[in-house]
Structure formats: structure tokens, C-alpha cells
Design a protein around this nucleic acid. Structure first.
Lengths: 233, 233
DNA sequence: ACCTGAACACCGTTCAAGT
DNA sequence: ACCTGAACACCGTTCAAGT
């Protein structure tokens, strides 16, 4: 068989299969040949649909970022944007969501989307590049903060520090990074890690708790700064 | 030549060369064959000194973590530990550093060490594993927080959220993630990114400012929580 | 003990050939 | 337009052979 009547592959099918493979076995397990086998075609077939492996990774990354909810910034996901009144930063009710609440909801959705695919986070964390969903995300966050009254320079920094925190929390489980083997912590050098071998068993609650604590602490600290900023006028 | 009188290689020389290669050309550029060429030996020679490429990466990672200053927790770097008075958590002066100050100093040193080698951060962020320097770091932070009065569960979460923030900030430059090409932001979808092409030019100050803002906000938020915790008693 | 070349099962990608 | 096998320059790792 050389050219089937109906194509065996599509870009979407390739991207979806690549993400599945990365989730299941890690970034290192994604090889074009392995992926082709998974899709029941020969290796070179992929190159009819994607130019390079890097371009494929870019598409996978943007599909993950596309899962992040941005509706709290007044730009609902599915709806066509560009409302005639030129007020893109309103929630459906008509009034903009207070920025700390919008930031909290967004951060949770952002983390959930990334933590569902931790193995791709190192690629994603390199920045938006030219990926449309990543640029849309950056635009929505920055725009909302500026319209809420943050100076542009501060809004940029808040976008950055939120990404630091979210990508860091989605990159790997803190708890699971500690071997469950108690003997590891026997050494006299680690006098306080006597219980560390039990961390991996509480993976979910430890990481979730750390994320929520950090998120609320960050927001409290930012609100403090915002108040100092506005009480000056 | 088969076996030279004085060995051509050593584990230290291999680790150092690997880190140089990773820094200069990225994690993907590190191949055992390429590394061997860099060291003027044949590929398989490396296997007399390291068992696998993964073990080599582990050693590289731990050498980077070894650069992090932990002296603010009362365990000075170079000095032999185990002071006879059994008070490991004191600064040279004798009194423990207040935890917010210790955390701040540590976070800055942690970030500096990692940001000097961003390409290795994805590996490092997987957790301490069995790496001695990484375990020592976790022990010092956790121990200091507990002795400062934080409940153990909270101390664990603070260690986790600090690592989230620091690894996230060291993984990649926020500013450099935005293409310097102004045309990228022309699309109607990005109404607020008109100046984003200028970000890459301010790489240093944007990322540094975001890290400092986030760090101080986090610490403020944590102090708030600590006060709530202690005023209850 | 420590280095070498040969060999194995992999990679990403190109290209001519098929329909 | 879309798939194939063959081919190229790479990988990590093993192993027998050398000193």
C-alpha cells in the first residue's frame, strides 16, 4: 500500500498520540519511530504531516495550554471574541472579576492543566514562543492586571512570577521526589528527615496543600503591594 | 594505547565536562559519544567511571545543588558538622537566624545556583532522590522551619512551595520566552502584547524583578500565616 | 585497572519510488 | 497527496581484546 484512499494519519491524531506517549512513558520515550509504530505506520510517514519532531512538540505543548481556562479574565474559551462594546475584560455578568480572584482561579486551572501532563512541562516552560494558545494566555493575564490598575511593569512581573510558581509546582511532585525507602535517610547528615520516607504515600495532599498555601500566600503578598500602590493617590 | 600509566579520565573531570556541555548546548546535546570526544577519549571509556548516562546526570545535578548556600540555617558549608553542643541550627553568632530572613537568603542562593545552569533544572526538579547534597538541603530547610516553630506538616509544605517557586524561576527566562520579532504580536488575538517584543531585551531586570517580587510576596504571606498560628496560643 | 574498536539495537530525517 | 523501504549520520551500551 502506498497511498490509501482515505489518509491513515492526520496532524491531530499524531499530536494526540504523542501526548499519550509522553504522559505514559516520559519525554525521552517519544521517538518518531516509536510514535509511528503506535499509529501503525512507518517512521517517515509522520513527515507528511509535521516538519520536524520539534514542531510536533510545539503542537503538543500548545494543545495542553489550550486546556487552561481564561474565562475569568473576560475572554470565555469557546466564544468568538471581539464583543462590539470593546470591553473584553468583563465576566458574563458585565463587571470585571476582582484581580486576586481571577488570578486564583486561573492559577488553579493552569496548574491542573499542566499537572495532568508533567512530562511536557519542561518544554512548555521555555515560554510562549510563537504558539497561539500560549500567547493568548499571556495576553489575557497581562491585560486583566493592567485594566485592574497595576502598572504595566508590575503586571509583567506578576505574570512572570505566577508562571514560575505554577510551572514549578506542575514539573514534578515534591513528595514523590523523596524515596519511600527509609534506609536512605539513615545517614547522620539528615537529622530531620526521619519521616521523609512516608512523604511519597501522601503525594496528593502534600503537593496540593503546598500549592494552595503558596498561592494564597502569594496573593496576600500581592494584595499588600496593590494597597500600598493605590493608597499613595 | 590501551591503559595509560596515569588515567586519562576521572569521575570529576567527566562530571565537569558534562555540565559545561549542558550549559553551552543544552541537555539534548549531551551524548556519551560527544562527551567522550570533548575529553579526547573513545565513547566506551566513560563506562570505566560511570555506570550509565543517568548516573552521570545525577552526579551533575548534585554538583549544582552543592553550590547552594545553607549556612543561614546554621550548617555552614565547608565546616565539619556535628558541633558538640548539639545545636546545629545556630548562626556563627550563636542565635538562630529568623526564619523569614533565612528563607530569603537561601532562596536567593538556591535560585542563583540553578539559574547558572538552567538546562539541568528539569532533571534537578524531579526531587532529591538519593543525592546527598539534595537531601542535605531538604534537611536543613525543614529542620530550621520546625525549630522556628512551624508545625511539621506546614514546614513540609513551605519546603515544597519554595522549591516550586525557585525551580520555576530558574527553569527558563520569562522575558526571553517572548520572540523579539514584533510581527508575532500583530494578530488581533493579542491586544495587550503590543510591547512584548521588547521583553527579551530586558531579560535580566524583568526576571530578577519578578523573582524578588514573588519572593517578598510569598514571605509576607507566610509571615501572616505564622502570626495567625502563634497568636492562637 | 583503564582504554580501545567492533558490534547491537536504537535514533531523526531525507529521498526516490510507488499509487 | 500520502505512504513505503533504503539509507545516512547519529545514539547508549556491551564486550572481547589489549597493556
Amino acid at each position: 500500500m502506498a497511498r490509501p484512499r482515505t489518509p491513515l494519519l492526520s496532524r491531530e491524531r499524531i499530536v494526540a498520540a504523542a501526548l499519550r506517549l509522553i504522559d505514559a512513558e516520559g519525554l525521552a520515550a517519544l521517538s518518531t519511530r516509536r510514535l509511528a509504530t503506535e499509529l501503525s505506520v512507518s517512521g517517515p510517514s509522520l513527515y507528511n504531516h509535521v516538519a520536524t519532531k520539534d514542531e510536533l512538540l510545539d503542537a503538543v505543548v500548545d494543545s495542553v495550554i489550550g486546556e487552561v481556562d481564561l474565562s475569568m479574565f473576560g475572554t470565555p474559551d469557546g466564544l468568538p471574541d471581539g464583543t462590539p462594546d470593546g470591553a473584553p475584560d468583563r465576566s458574563p455578568g458585565g463587571r470585571p472579576t476582582p484581580w486576586p480572584d481571577a488570578l486564583r482561579d486561573w492559577a488553579r486551572s493552569y496548574r491542573a492543566a499542566l499537572a495532568a501532563h508533567p512530562n511536557i512541562v519542561p518544554v512548555l516552560a521555555q515560554g510562549p514562543g510563537r504558539r497561539p494558545n500560549a500567547l493568548r494566555l499571556a495576553d489575557a493575564v497581562f491585560g486583566h492586571l493592567v485594566e485592574a490598575g497595576w502598572p504595566r511593569g508590575q503586571a509583567t512581573r506578576i505574570g512572570a512570577l505566577m508562571r514560575y510558581f505554577v510551572t514549578g509546582s506542575a514539573l514534578a511532585s515534591f513528595a514523590a521526589g523523596f524515596p519511600a525507602d527509609a534506609e536512605v535517610y539513615d545517614a547522620v547528615d539528615y537529622p530531620h528527615l526521619g519521616e521523609a520516607h512516608r512523604l511519597a504515600g501522601h503525594r496528593g495532599t502534600v503537593d496540593e496543600g503546598a500549592f494552595e498555601t503558596g498561592l494564597e500566600a502569594l496573593l496576600d503578598g500581592l494584595v499588600l503591594r496593590f494597597d500600598r500602590l493605590t493608597e499613595r493617590s
